[in-house]
Design a protein around this nucleic acid. Structure first.
Lengths: 169, 169
DNA sequence: TTGGCTGCAAACTTTTTGCAGGGGT
DNA sequence: ACCCCTGCAAAAAGTTTGCAGCCAA
């Protein structure tokens, strides 16, 4: 069973990573890797941005700007929430980060993982769980390759699976 | 080709209905049908709620509270935006309405269609297009029936397809 | 050195809340 | 008649913006 432990961020949403194939807990990336990613995106590697990007990669799940700010502020006392918003906007524009589609919750959520993946929404706990499955990806791509969509060219697919965790599935 | 005309609501998102199988433009429901739906949900059929529910069903796509309010206010001069919010909350809680997951846009969007369907996100026009395909539903359900998810019981699936409209797909 | 980035604070948008009064059942 | 629902307005929550100064390239 590939199921990660659950992390709590205050009393907000719980998030974890769920994959039938690989299970990778976020590994804190090395500073030079962060610099590299920022440089490739054409963004300056300031202290703040390094911490913001690292937080995005490290924080379990799909943090809000507020949550990113909380973590960064813990490491670097005086960072402004406005800076976090501006940085996240830049990241999204540069393709470094995605905004996550979610129906619940007031705040926008961000995901540093720009690779294709799916989401499990637990109705009980409000968790948003990442789900990776190349087999499923292939199935969907084959379906649309065979069937096609008139007048629409699909680029990426993300399946939203709503349900709830059970003790034994 | 089953492709509906596109509707504009001011200069906000364009929305239309897209289905490979059936193409139904929202038909204004009869008042007694609206009453029925509210009664079944255990909600009082006030003038305001009838108009709000009707607007949800009639407005093309996935309107925000603001958009619902604009339409209702056009028919019933003095309705409060707060009332729209409260009513929509009740509807969601009663299962009459869903909140739509979306990454873009500041405001929450609502969908009176609680049947299972999927969404096309056009990166060019920002449209959110409904997509119905029982064949796709079956494919996904079969996949998870066969493969299963450990520790998770799926209830519903919604595929988010990002791409863009083309003149000839 | 220079222009992008930061901090701060004000403004703005969206959503929630409290309460008195009205209308559905 | 009861009490859920509405209107109003204030407040809370979330996000954007403007500008002076700073710092990465």
């Amino acid at each position: 069973m590939a199921y990660s432990p659950i992390f709590a961020e205050n009393n907000s949403y719980l998030v974890s990573t769920y994959s039938d194939h690989v299970h990778t807990l976020p590994t804190p990336p090395r500073p030079d890797q962060l610099r590299e990613r920022l440089a490739q995106a054409g963004l300056r590697a300031t202290r703040q941005r390094l911490l913001i990007l690292e937080s995005l990669l490290v924080l379990p799940g799909h943090p809000t700007a507020e949550q990113v700010h909380r973590r960064v502020a813990g490491l670097e006392a005086s960072i402004s929430l406005g800076t976090v918003y501006k940085a996240l906007d830049s990241f999204v524009e540069a393709g470094l980060t995605r905004r996550v589609a979610s129906a619940e919750g007031a705040s926008r959520r961000y995901d540093a993982d720009c690779t294709e993946h799916h989401h499990l929404f637990c109705t009980d706990t409000q968790e948003i769980i990442d789900y990776c499955d190349p087999q499923l990806d292939a199935l969907i791509r084959e379906f649309f390759a065979a069937k096609g969509l008139q007048n629409f060219q699909p680029h990426s697919f993300s399946l939203h699976i709503t349900g709830n965790k059970v003790s034994n599935g």
